[in-house]
């Protein structure tokens, strides 16, 4: 028999049929019980990796924008702070100048008033003195007219008048 010579045994076609069925059943069983869960798991893994990469990218962008926003806000608050300080300085400067100028004008007013009152007093004193001198002259003139004066007497007379003047001034 040819098959006996080639393969060392008679070819058992029934066994071959059995092998075919056995192999098909094995493939089917492995497909149902192992291959499908494996593929499902592998697909899930692929999806998870993809979504992880996507979400990481998104988080990265968010972090970038947040950092930028924070930097902007920091710069803005820096600007605001310097504006506030500048404003405060200006206000302080203004107030200082105001106070100084007020003080100066007050001092000027006080000085002016003092000058005025001194002038007034001087005028008053002058006027009084004028009156006094006029009165005195009138008195002196009336005394001279009333009495002839001698040289010696005149001395005593004048002294007495001057004394009288002093008393008058004191009494005033």
């Amino acid at each position: 028999m040819l098959s006996q010579l080639v393969f060392g045994a008679e070819l058992a076609y029934g066994t071959m049929l059995y092998y075919l069925v056995l192999f098909l059943v094995l493939v089917l069983l492995i497909k149902v019980f192992a291959w499908k869960p494996i593929n499902k798991m592998l697909n899930e893994r692929t999806q998870q990796i993809v979504s992880d990469i996507d979400s990481a990218k998104q988080k990265h962008q968010e972090a970038d924008s947040l950092a930028k926003q924070r930097q902007d806000e920091l710069n803005k608050s820096h600007d605001e702070a310097s504006t506030i300080i500048t404003n405060a300085k200006q206000a302080g400067q203004k107030q200082q100048e105001q106070i100084v100028s007020d003080a100066q004008s007050d001092a000027q007013t006080i000085k002016d008033n003092a000058h005025k009152s001194i002038e007034q007093e001087r005028q008053d004193v002058l006027a009084n003195t004028k009156n006094d001198v006029a009165n005195l002259s009138i008195e002196i003139a009336s005394k001279i007219i009333q009495k002839e004066l001698k040289a010696n007497d005149q001395k005593a007379l004048i002294d007495s008048y001057i004394e009288g003047l002093g008393k008058q001034n004191e009494s005033r």
Partner: peptide
Amino acid sequence: LTFNIGNMVAATVAAAIVL
């Protein structure tokens, strides 16, 4: 058809082990 029982058992055992 000729069925070889020994070989069939061997193949079934191998397939069962794989499964």
